[in-house]
């Protein structure tokens, strides 16, 4: 891959996130939500992590931001600009160089006006001007500043949070499901804002369940399934089924309306009953004996795939 030579902006290597749960009061149980996930985001690049709801995508965002709940633990390595992203470093970078754009209005304080939240309480002239500019850039007028979150539409709330992110001139933007609940035009518009940020040099990690929308804007697609990534492909690979590397990605491809709308049989495995080997093995048409063993994530045709076969 071209990005390999340069140090990527964000590199996640073999990340696993698990939760400690108490079952029937005393039995402690580890529940693995993300297993052996690797991905890279370069500066000026937009990478989309695409996976169905409940596959643990949001945890990836929270994990990178260092905001996992207290009963979660993680293993693996996260590098930012070539150096390990420690809690210490995160404290300085969070909200400045690395920003999160969350899902919707519930991430805004219900009792505080929009303007105050974008400015984070700052009252000086410069912050006011910056806030006004950032909101204006996304088509939000002055009156938006005095609105409370419950008075914003879904699209407005997203744009407010994008404005809040952009005014910090971030290097890395993590967008966690920014499109659900928006109609197509608004969703496209929101994604185009992230594209703009990438054009301006920031690395964008887009986390979404909507493959079609992701393909419109992202450079690379990371296919996420049952807590891990099965394939990493260029957006252009999705023009032909034969260019895709993993059976699941191909199933996704065939599931898109323009490619026949065919649903693959079966459902995604969850939490406790993850297979030992390939997570897609139970549904895979090409499954064989060795699929029951853990499958390495390997290079193939300029992308990466977690599958034994060269298909």
């Amino acid at each position: 891959m071209e990005q390999k030579e340069k140090t990527p902006l964000l590199a996640v290597r073999h990340l696993s996130i698990s939760f400690t749960q108490y079952k029937r009061w005393w039995r402690r149980e580890e529940q693995q939500a993300i297993r052996d996930l690797s991905l890279e985001v370069g500066a000026g690049e937009m990478v989309a992590v695409v996976g169905s709801s409940g596959s643990g995508k949001s945890l990836l965002a929270h994990g990178v931001m260092g905001l996992l709940p207290y009963n979660a633990s993680w293993e693996g390595d996260i590098f930012y600009k070539g150096e390990p992203l420690t809690e210490e470093r995160l404290k300085k970078l969070r909200g400045r160089e690395i920003v999160l754009v969350p899902q919707g209005a519930s991430y805004l304080n219900p009792l505080m006006t929009t303007g105050e939240q974008v400015r984070q309480g700052a009252r000086d002239r410069e912050s006011r001007r910056q806030c006004r500019e950032a909101l204006e850039r996304y088509g939000l007028g002055e009156e938006t500043e005095s609105l409370y979150p419950f008075q914003l539409s879904g699209g407005m709330a997203r744009r407010v949070m994008i404005a809040a992110a952009v005014q910090r001139k971030p290097c890395l933007v993590i967008a966690d499901e920014p499109t659900p609940g928006l109609h197509l035009e608004a969703a496209k518009r929101v994604l185009s804002h992230f594209r703009e940020m990438a054009e301006e040099g920031a690395g964008v990690l887009l986390i979404t369940h909507d493959l079609e929308l992701a393909l419109l804007t992202a450079d690379r697609i990371v296919v996420f399934y049952a807590g891990t990534n099965l394939e990493e492909a260029w957006a252009g690979d999705f023009t032909q089924e034969e260019q895709l590397r993993h059976p699941y990605t191909r199933a996704l491809f065939r599931g898109m309306p323009k490619n026949g709308f065919q649903a693959a049989a079966g459902a995604q495995p969850y939490g406790d009953n993850l297979p030992e080997g390939c997570v897609y093995e139970p549904r895979c048409p090409w499954r064989q004996e060795q699929c029951r063993q853990p499958v390495p994530y390997r290079q193939l045709r300029g992308g990466r795939v977690r599958c034994w076969r060269d298909i």
Binding site: K91, R94, S106
Partner: peptide, 20 residues
């Protein structure tokens, strides 16, 4: 969610308690 977001934006613990 909004406290998570405030933390993601780098607000300190004290500020979060006070403002949110």
């Amino acid at each position: 969610d909004y406290v998570l977001y405030a933390r993601a934006r780098g607000e300190s613990f004290r500020r979060i308690v006070w403002r949110h």
